[in-house]
Amino acid sequence: MAYGDDATQLVIESKRSQHADSLLKYNDHLVRAVIREQRDLEKLIQAALARLAPAAPGDDVAVTADVVLYQTVILRNKRCLLAYHAHRLDRLKDLYWSVGGALPLLLSAPTTAVSANAAGDLRSRLSPHEVDFLRAYNDSLIDFRSGVIDTEELDLFAQISKPPKDLHVLVRVVRDCGVIQTEVGAIDFRRGQRFLVRRADVEHLIVQGYLDEVS
């Protein structure tokens, strides 16, 4: 197998995930294989350097060519690995925002209506490091909200693509979400019923896909 094939596989996987608009399972096996390849390559470089004539290092053209080739492959593999992971992190961040920053929902609940196609049983498709990343991302966002912006009014997760036109919103229930306590009383959202409610009270439920707005 030629050098760099595994890494190319990883990039192809990213591309597939991009086209299919879904997050594939973290390919631990392949990533490890690439890293192993890197180590092997490094050993080869070391060996080649050792073979290099100590007297006139620049003269041995064959050995220098070897080293340059190995070096190129290593750099390429590294780029592929970085691309693969960067792509996954981007997707994770997108998912995180699409559910309105509800991390527990993203990690525990197997599905939400909004991200049903992308996030179905997300946890099992993540590597432990990615879960850590999500947590850390969440934490820093909370820090940012409380510390840097220092205001409670600004809802970072509110939709900006569709600014609200009305104080109230007519919603139908996509999934049962139990009794919700709002400022003006408790509402028990049940499937098969429709509600006219204050937008501010249920904004997060709409974003998370429990409720659906009836235009």
Partner: peptide
């Protein structure tokens, strides 16, 4: 009725 109530900003719930 839902239309009327909506115009009056009365929050309501419809149950079949």
């Amino acid at each position: 009725l839902a239309t009327l109530l909506k115009h009056d900003d009365v929050m309501h719930r419809v149950i079949p």
